[in-house]
């Protein structure tokens, strides 16, 4: 465990909490892509099937929190606050993300076993899971500040993981090429958003895309 990974994990945790609190406090999931949240639930489920493979208390606890929070979020969007779900703007075709991620996981993995292929699938899936949400923001042309904070925390997490991987490569000689490449793709997808966040949201303006 190094500082980059710890801050990355905390940023990830913060993102999930921000989203749950936003939906709970406003009693609304307006502006949130339910499709992205379903993809994240799929990501955590397929990745943390290795939960019985004990690494540390920290690891186990975080995995359980991520899985539970992702299902809670999906429940809030599709059940409890269904009436506020903006499905007309959540039109990204997720099969274009799920199927290629799965096929790629079958082709490029560390080991051709069920758990390993599912872990690899979750890594590929995670790298693009935010696309329905970003698509929704670009379609409506704006995002609430709280949604922007959520996206910033979620995007920062993988960027911090890249620093963690560089650190681990230099200090432990440990690296996982699948995670690294997917993590870079994931971070690059947020770049446009990061730019808007820094130039607009941090200056107190609403995140609005130029018409």
């Amino acid at each position: 465990m190094n500082i980059f990974r710890l801050v990355g994990d905390l940023s990830h945790l913060l993102a999930i909490i921000i989203l749950l609190l936003k939906i709970w406090k406003t009693r609304s999931c307006a502006g949130i892509s339910g499709k992205s949240q379903i993809l994240f639930a799929i990501v955590y489920t397929s990745r943390y099937l290795d939960l019985p493979n004990f690494v540390s208390m920290y690891n186990t606890l975080m995995k359980i929190v991520f899985i539970a929070a992702s299902y809670a979020t999906v429940y809030l969007i599709y059940m409890k606050f269904k009436a506020t779900y903006d499905h007309n703007h959540d039109t990204f075709r997720v099969e274009f993300l799920v199927l290629p991620s799965f096929v790629l996981a079958l082709l490029i993995n560390h080991d051709f076993t069920v758990l390993e292929v599912l872990w690899t699938f979750s890594i590929y899936m995670e790298s693009v899971a935010i696309l329905p949400q970003l698509f929704m923001v670009s379609k409506t042309g704006e995002a609430e500040s709280i949604t922007s904070h959520y996206l910033f925390a979620l995007g920062s997490y993988r960027a911090l993981y890249i620093l963690n991987w560089i650190y681990r490569y230099t200090t432990e000689d440990h690296y996982d090429l699948i995670a690294i490449v997917a993590g870079i793709v994931q971070t690059v997808l947020y770049c446009d958003f990061f730019y808007l966040y820094i130039t607009k949201v941090l200056k107190g303006k609403k995140l609005q895309l130029p018409a």
Binding site: H12, N53, N59, M62, D111, T113, Y161, D176, I178
Partner: peptide, 10 residues
């Protein structure tokens, strides 16, 4: 080589 047991990250 990465194996399942080396997936020590989240």
């Amino acid at each position: 080589k990465s194996t399942l047991s080396s997936h020590d990250e989240l």
